[in-house]
């Protein structure tokens, strides 16, 4: 990184930067200034500016004025006190804003995958036992099994707010229930994983007319809705299409070639077997 280039750019851009300040500022300053003027400031500064003969007069006048103001302030003491308090509190700067606050904002994540999980059936191992002899024990173990299932259900709800279907049939004829860590539970599948099968976004392409990867095409099948948009790092829309076969040729709308670098791809789509419209994002590296 060249050290000076940053300095030069900063100086060039900000040296004469003069935005309009918010409107309420002056009233705060005015109050504080009046407050200061109402105190000692006025008397001293006016002495300074009196004409040469005025100084001698001032010497005589000052004690009188002091006495006068003393009595005057005493009378209005309560009134001025409250007034000063009010203006003082208005002038007070607001508490300093925590910088961490601002830094957190930078970490916004674009995708929040909804996690769905589904327990199809619990597989429980069983071994045959003598029913007549063990009636009591069977009922207790089944109860235990049920408790285990609710446990599983709660765990999953906590982790992923999933929809869970428990098949009670599985418990029906079984005894000697194996603890829940042996039951086969289908792992939660994130939205991203689901989408990976249907939509394929590559992360690089090279529009240099060499016959290899000259167009950026999204692979998608069985879709009823498709929209591809490409943005540059300034969040400007560079390209968009509803045709999955069209693809981006790496040029601006006016036909000029785009710079080498990173771009953002957003695909909005809906497959024939899907109820909802989904979005998929990816960074794209343009190479030449």
């Amino acid at each position: 990184m060249e050290d000076n280039s940053l300095d030069i750019i900063l100086k060039k851009q900000l040296q004469n930067y003069a935005p309009e300040p918010p409107s309420g500022v002056w009233s705060g300053i005015e109050k504080a200034a009046n407050n200061a003027a109402g105190n000692s400031g006025n008397i001293f500064s006016s002495i300074k500016n009196l004409a040469w003969f005025g100084k001698t007069v001032a010497v005589l006048v000052v004690p009188a004025a002091v006495a006068l103001t003393y009595f005057a302030t005493k009378q209005t003491e309560n009134a001025t006190k409250t007034e000063q308090n009010i203006s003082a509190s208005q002038v007070k700067p607001e508490p300093i804003i925590d910088i961490q606050k601002t830094s957190i904002q930078t970490e916004t994540i674009l995708i929040k995958p909804k996690v769905k999980s589904k327990i199809k059936a619990a597989e429980i191992k069983s071994t045959p036992i003598n029913l007549v002899e063990n009636v009591a024990s069977i009922s207790t173990t089944i109860d235990a099994a049920k408790i285990d299932f609710t446990k599983v259900a709660i765990d999953n709800v906590i982790h992923s707010a999933a929809k869970i279907e428990v098949a009670p049939k599985a418990v029906k004829h079984n005894s000697n229930v194996v603890p829940s860590n042996n039951t086969a539970i289908q792992k939660p599948v994130s939205d991203n994983q689901l989408q990976d099968d249907a939509v394929v976004l590559t992360n690089a392409f090279s529009p240099d007319n060499d016959g290899l990867n000259d167009k950026y095409i999204v692979k998608i099948e069985n879709e009823k809705l498709f929209h591809l948009s490409i943005y540059n790092f300034k969040n400007e829309l560079i390209f968009e299409t509803d045709d999955k076969n069209e693809g981006w040729d790496g040029n601006y709308k006016n036909g000029l070639p785009c710079e080498v670098g990173m771009y953002a791809v957003t695909v909005v789509y809906q497959l024939n077997n899907q109820q909802e419209v989904r979005t998929k994002n990816r960074g794209l590296n343009l190479l030449r």
């Binding site: 930078t106 916004t108 674009l110 995708i111 790092f233 771009y263 960074g283």
Partner: peptide
């Protein structure tokens, strides 16, 4: 980071 925020799809 400012620029990356836009592109980070993960």
């Amino acid at each position: 980071k400012l620029n990356n925020n836009l592109v980070s799809g993960r």
